[in-house]
């Protein structure tokens, strides 16, 4: 299928926070409670429609366990977007965000859009990290923030698509050089290279959704 742009995403965060489950929910619309530990990289992809443009999201799901961390670092290169995930029921996963963020900043483009995700929002009774803390961390570090549940699919679409919207916005503003593959963006085959300028009419389809649908 043709696409206007391809955005490379990377999903990072501590082990067990639900990175692979978020990917599975986004690509296959299903939740798998038991999931093998990821080693290396597992891939997923999906087409989304942003502002009338078909955009292919190529998603790299990485290993979160510390033992595989050095390998994970080598896959940051060329990512346009990162989903930095923590588990709202495990404080330590939130505490480790700074370290993940340092890695991300160090090994990727400075323009990379980072979405901070507090996952497992369905487990409200076991919440260990307040939503406000996530918001504050995101604000402090210039990240977008959402709480999601891979189990209920709450905000999962929004997390991936809002990241794409932000990348697309940066392309429109000329902040991303789409010809520099280090930015994690590729122009689709047989696409015009001209960058859309200004606001255009959004042609939403079933997978182009508003950013304020917050169900969590």
């Amino acid at each position: 299928m043709t696409y206007a742009y391809l955005f490379k995403y990377i999903i990072i965060g501590d082990t067990g926070v639900g990175k692979s489950c978020l990917l599975l929910q986004f690509t296959d619309k299903r939740f798998q409670p038991v999931h093998d530990l990821t080693i290396g990289v597992e891939f997923g992809a999906r087409m989304v429609n942003i502002d009338g443009k078909q955009i292919k999201l190529q998603i790299w799901d990485t290993a979160g366990q510390e033992s595989f961390r050095s390998i994970t670092r080598s896959y940051y290169r060329g990512a346009a977007g990162a989903l930095l995930v923590y588990d709202i029921t495990r404080r330590e996963t939130f505490n480790h965000l700074t370290s993940w963020l340092e890695d991300a900043r160090q090994h990727s483009s400075s323009n990379m859009v980072i979405m901070l995700i507090g996952n497992k929002s369905d487990l409200e009774s076991r919440r260990d990290v307040k939503r406000e803390e996530g918001e504050a961390f995101a604000r402090e570090h210039g990240l977008i923030f959402m709480e999601t549940s891979a189990k209920t699919a709450c905000n999962v679409e929004e997390a991936f698509i809002n990241t794409a919207k932000e990348i697309y916005r940066k392309i429109q503003q000329g902040l991303f050089d789409v010809h520099n593959e280090a930015n994690g963006i590729k122009i689709g085959p047989q696409q015009s290279i001209s960058t859309p300028v200004g606001s255009s009419t959004s042609q939403r389809n079933s997978r182009d959704i508003g950013s304020n649908s917050g169900c969590c």
Binding site: D14, T15, G16, P33, V34, H35, D36, L37, Q65, S67, R90
Partner: peptide, 16 residues
């Protein structure tokens, strides 16, 4: 049993 307690999982890993 890998997923029941992913945090405490101990993989015998000469590799690392």
């Amino acid at each position: 049993s890998l997923v029941a307690s992913p945090v405490s999982l101990s993989i015998p890993m000469r590799a690392a």
